[in-house]
Amino acid sequence: MADADFLRIEGVSKSFGAFQAVRDVTLSVAQGEIFALLGGSGCGKTTLLRMLAGFEEPTAGRIYLDGKDMAGVPPWLRPVHMMFQSYALFPHMTVETNIAYGLKHEEMTKADRADRVREMLDLVQLTPFAKRKAHQISGGQRQRVALARALARHPKLLLLDEPLAALDKKLREHTQFELMSIQERTGVTFIVVTHDQEEAMTLADRIAVMDKGEVRQVGSPTEVYEFPANRFVASFIGSITTFAATVLGREGGQLRLKVADFGTEVLARDVPGITEGQAVTLALRLEKIIISQTRPEAANVVEGVVKDLAYFGKDSLYRITLPSGALVQVHAVNARRGDEAARVADWDDRVWLSFEPGAAIVLGD
């Protein structure tokens, strides 16, 4: 059974002079897990990654890997490898010599080293490119060379700093699944740092969302998207529209809210700790709202007028003005083929918006 506390980060902080880059972070990562550190620039995710690698020492707190305290252990003695965003390949070397470079200080025979390189080439499907120089292969292939070099030493922990940032969108999407497949075959624990929420949601078993050096929520992709713990996570993961609301009470296991911008009451899924009379935020994911030109039979319904729309092919974005003047954004999938037929509504059309109580996110923070 995999160790649920394979990597333990306990109360770790890091200061650079008066600036605190990481604030009292506590996390546990299971063996064989893909764990993502997700956040914007300057949130502390790369500093935390560098502390795991041993390039920085924590100002406070402890890091344990496979039961061993990493305090004072230099990078070259840790069972950890870091794959940099730039890949850091040697352009004058071939693919196979780049992979072999990471093994130069390993105690192994020349034959064993060659076998390990062949194993890694096969793992990342680059055997036909073994003799090519690094500059003679594509960006996606260079990424796989860097991954093979990192895995060649059989690290217990692999740290990936924005591993797909240099790739174009289509190649990035393809490589995400390749990374997942390679990780599953090797069983190595991956820690991925990224600012790309879609990348984190696709790759990771669990995500830690960071802001200003702090972890704001830890959970599976489904948990952080569908059940955000606070306004920051709700707005950072995906797209939302928010409204001020007041809790009127509970009814049938649901919260009843007064939403001034809607001019009506709203039913939402219950949230523990929320009290009657409390001021809260109602958050709605754009794709959870249904737009129609006839009033639907639904728990929550509000009327509005289409102010703007944008056609993206697979879906359209509608900006709806409510009678209160508030603006609601809605994503609707274009399931039908055609020009006008693909649109649910047009500019200046009067429409109805509806959503289920389970789609209504109530945030007290």
Rank of each mutant, 00 (worst) to 15 (best):
D3H: 11
L7W: 00
R8C: 12
I9Y: 00
G11C: 07
S13V: 15
K14Q: 12
A18I: 15
A21S: 14
V25A: 05
V29H: 03
G32P: 13
G32I: 13
L37A: 06
G44D: 13
M51R: 07
M51I: 12
L52V: 13
A53W: 02
Y64L: 15
D66F: 10
G72F: 04
V73R: 00
P74Q: 03
L77K: 15
A88Y: 08
F90C: 09
P91T: 15
M93Y: 05
E96S: 14
E96Q: 14
K104C: 08
E107A: 15
T109Q: 02
D112K: 10
A114W: 01
D115M: 06
P128E: 06
K133Y: 13
K133E: 10
A134N: 10
I137W: 04
S138F: 03
G139H: 01
G140I: 11
G140P: 08
Q143G: 14
L147Y: 10
P155C: 12
L159I: 13
L160M: 02
L167C: 06
L167F: 01
L167D: 06
H174E: 14
H174D: 14
Q176R: 13
F177A: 15
E178H: 08
I182A: 01
E184S: 15
F190D: 08
V192K: 02
D196N: 12
Q197Y: 00
M201D: 01
R206G: 07
D211K: 12
V215I: 14
Y225S: 04
Y225E: 01
R231H: 04
A234M: 02
A234H: 00
S239T: 14
S239M: 11
T241C: 04
A244H: 03
L248N: 11
E251D: 11
Q254C: 13
V266G: 06
A268M: 03
V271A: 01
P272M: 06
I274P: 02
G277I: 09
G277A: 07
A279S: 13
L282S: 07
A283K: 01
R285N: 09
K288E: 13
I290A: 13
S292V: 08
A299F: 02
N300D: 00
V305E: 10
S316W: 05
S316K: 05
S324M: 08
G325M: 06
A326S: 14
L327C: 07
V330C: 05
V330S: 04
H331Y: 15
A335G: 13
A341F: 07
D346P: 01
D349T: 07
A360F: 03
I361K: 00
